[in-house]
């Protein structure tokens, strides 16, 4: 077992001892970047807030998000994954001006 990325933010007791790790820092699992939470990058920036009442489900935000943070259910956007959202604001810009369902709020107001 290898980490497959940077900090896992796990306590030492949950991490494997060296004997259980694969040699040569080989990684044999796929798709584990989901465990690497990059949402803290948003720290000094902005957090997008999605108003589902205004949303027309055009999925522009979903297709243009560089970090695949828009959570879909039955083909509809139902929320934002703040563990991985870096607060770039592309979604807010891509949301059609007539709809304007995503607003950017200063992250500091949430902390």
């Amino acid at each position: 077992m290898s980490s497959g990325g940077f900090s896992t933010e796990k306590p030492d007791a949950e991490l494997p001892p060296w004997q259980e790790m694969l040699p040569g820092s080989v990684l044999d699992q796929a798709g584990n970047s989901v465990h690497r939470k990059t949402g803290f990058w948003r720290g000094g920036g902005r957090r997008p807030l999605l108003d589902l009442k205004l949303c027309v489900q055009c999925l522009h935000c979903w297709i243009s998000c560089p970090d695949a943070c828009f959570i879909l259910s039955d083909g509809k956007v139902i929320g934002i994954d703040y563990d991985h959202c870096k607060g770039c604001g592309i979604c807010s810009r891509e949301c059609p001006p007539m709809v304007n369902a995503i607003v950017l709020i200063d992250e500091g107001r949430f902390r």
């Binding site: 980490s3 896992t8 991490l15 060296w18 790790m21 820092s25 990684l27």
Partner: peptide, 20 residues
């Protein structure tokens, strides 16, 4: 069995890999 080589190793794993 797909694998990846040469990944970034965080401080909590590097030492264990050296032990290997």
């Amino acid at each position: 069995r797909p694998v990846s080589y040469g990944l970034g190793d965080p401080p909590e794993f590097y030492m264990e890999h050296k032990m290997r």
